[in-house]
């Protein structure tokens, strides 16, 4: 049985661990709130962008296909995978689930004879994939958007992707990230960015209220459709990345909060157990000493 000194040291160390985990939980909770607000605030832009894209894509004459970012290159030989993870660990299964899905997807694509290229965002993604797939990683971005993720951060990645696409480096681009559902539940999501799947079912133009029964209005374009699309699509790519990364940040903080909450509770249980052992041991020591004294006195 451990002696008293050992137990005391052990209890003290678990207590200080508990202090750290509970502090981390608080920090994650406040960051989570901020991240959620940021994700919420970024939503209107994305919604309006989609509405515009839908009406633009609808007015592109069929057959011409439109810009390649929308229509694709016509092949799906080379896949670019953007794996978005966090820079810091201690976030429960947050990074592990993303990496597991990424590995599964890479294997799936490779078994179909496709070429895979990787772009990792976040240190954990780079470190996790470097061992098995170092040959596939073409670039990795770390410490993106510290302390706050801004649109420019997402845009810099988006520009990289656009440049790679224009250089013919890949045909299809998919982003893997954690969609935020709640603090205890995040969903690994694969989202195709290039060619961009045009949202269907988005109402582009509401009918004019002044003229009931009139056919839905058709947009004029200034300059023409293709030129606007040419500018809009790279922007849309950056926006999609931006919203996904914001979700990812919220998920990371949520996962960390839950993980740290569990850790704090586990530490509490451990302290209770150790304290009981400590008290029992102390009692046993006292009893033993008493017995020794009494039997010593009896022997006289």
């Amino acid at each position: 049985m451990a002696n008293l000194k050992d137990l005391r040291v052990r209890i003290r160390s678990v207590k200080s661990t508990q202090k750290i985990t509970s502090a981390m939980k608080m920090v994650a909770a406040s960051r989570l709130r901020r991240a959620q607000e940021a994700a919420e605030a970024a939503r209107p832009y994305g919604v309006r962008m989609e509405r515009m894209l839908a009406s633009l894509a609808g007015s592109i004459p069929a057959g011409s296909g439109g810009p390649k970012l929308l229509a694709g290159t016509g092949k799906d030989k080379v896949h670019l995978l953007i794996v978005a993870t966090s820079d810091r660990g201690l976030a429960g299964g947050f990074n592990a689930t993303i990496l597991r899905d990424a590995r599964r997807y890479i294997r799936e694509l490779e078994s179909q004879g496709k070429t895979v290229k990787l772009l990792t965002i976040g240190r954990k993604g780079r470190d996790g994939l470097r061992r098995d797939y170092a040959r596939l990683i073409i670039n990795s971005v770390t410490e993106l958007g510290r302390p706050r993720l801004s649109f420019l951060d997402a845009k810099s990645v988006g520009d990289q992707v656009t440049a790679l696409f224009e250089a013919g480096e890949f045909d299809v681009c998919t982003l893997i990230y954690n969609k935020f559902k709640s603090a205890i539940s995040q969903i690994v999501t694969r989202q195709q960015l290039v060619p961009f799947p045009v949202p269907v079912g988005v109402v582009a133009v509401e009918p004019v209220p002044h003229a009931p029964g009139a056919p839905a209005a058709v947009y004029e374009f200034e300059p023409d459709e293709s030129e606007i699309l040419e500018e809009l699509l790279p922007r849309n790519l950056a926006i999609q990345l931006f919203t996904a990364l914001l979700e990812n940040v919220a998920s990371e903080q949520g996962a960390r909060m839950t993980a740290m909450d569990n850790a704090t509770r586990n530490a509490g249980e451990m302290i209770d157990r150790l304290t009981i052992t400590y008290n029992r041991t102390r009692q046993a020591v006292i009893t033993k000493e008493l017995i020794e004294i009494i039997s010593g006195a009896d022997a006289l």
């Binding site: 633009l56 058709v218 004029e220 374009f221 200034e222």
Partner: peptide
């Protein structure tokens, strides 16, 4: 109000 639908840069 009542402007023709338009998308512009």
């Amino acid at each position: 109000i009542g402007h023709a639908p338009l998308i512009s840069t």
